[in-house]
C-alpha cells in the first residue's frame, strides 16, 4: 500500500506535455516556439494553451521580438518555474523511495 498523497504533485506540471516543456526548458537557456513545437510534437494551438498555463503560473517567461520582420517568441524558465520543477522531481523521487 502506497501512502503517497498524489495531490501534493503540482497540477500545472503534472501533464505530459507541460512536463515535457518544463524538462526541455530546464536544459536550455531559452527556446523558440518552433523548437518546442518540434520537440513535443504538438500543434500550434495545443502548444499555445499549455504554454499559456505555464506562463499564468509564472513558471515561464515570454519574450516577443521581430527578426527581419518575422515574429519570434522565445520562452525561458523563471526562478519560480525552476523551483517548481525541482520540487516536482524531488516528490517523484520521494515516492519511489517509499
Amino acid at each position: 500500500m502506497n501512502d503517497f498523497d498524489y495531490q501534493q504533485l503540482d497540477d500545472v506540471i503534472h501533464s505530459r506535455i507541460r512536463l515535457a516543456l518544463m524538462a526541455l526548458l530546464i536544459s536550455v537557456e531559452e527556446a523558440e516556439f518552433n523548437f518546442l513545437k518540434e520537440k513535443v510534437n504538438a500543434t500550434d494551438g495545443n502548444l499555445s494553451v499549455h504554454l499559456k498555463k505555464l506562463e499564468e503560473a509564472n513558471y515561464i517567461s515570454v519574450k516577443k521580438e521581430f527578426i527581419d520582420r518575422k515574429p519570434k517568441t522565445v520562452y525561458s524558465l523563471t526562478k519560480t518555474g525552476i523551483k517548481a520543477f525541482e520540487l516536482y522531481v524531488a516528490q517523484l523521487e520521494k515516492l519511489i523511495k517509499k
Partner: peptide
C-alpha cells in the same frame, strides 16, 4: 500515483533533457 508511474515520469524527464542536450 504508484511507484511505476513515478519511475516512468522520471525516465520521461531524463529522456527529454537528454534529447534537448543533443540540440547543441
Amino acid at each position: 500515483m504508484d511507484d511505476r508511474t513515478a519511475i516512468d515520469e522520471l525516465v520521461f524527464i531524463r529522456k527529454v533533457i537528454e534529447d534537448s542536450k543533443r540540440s547543441v
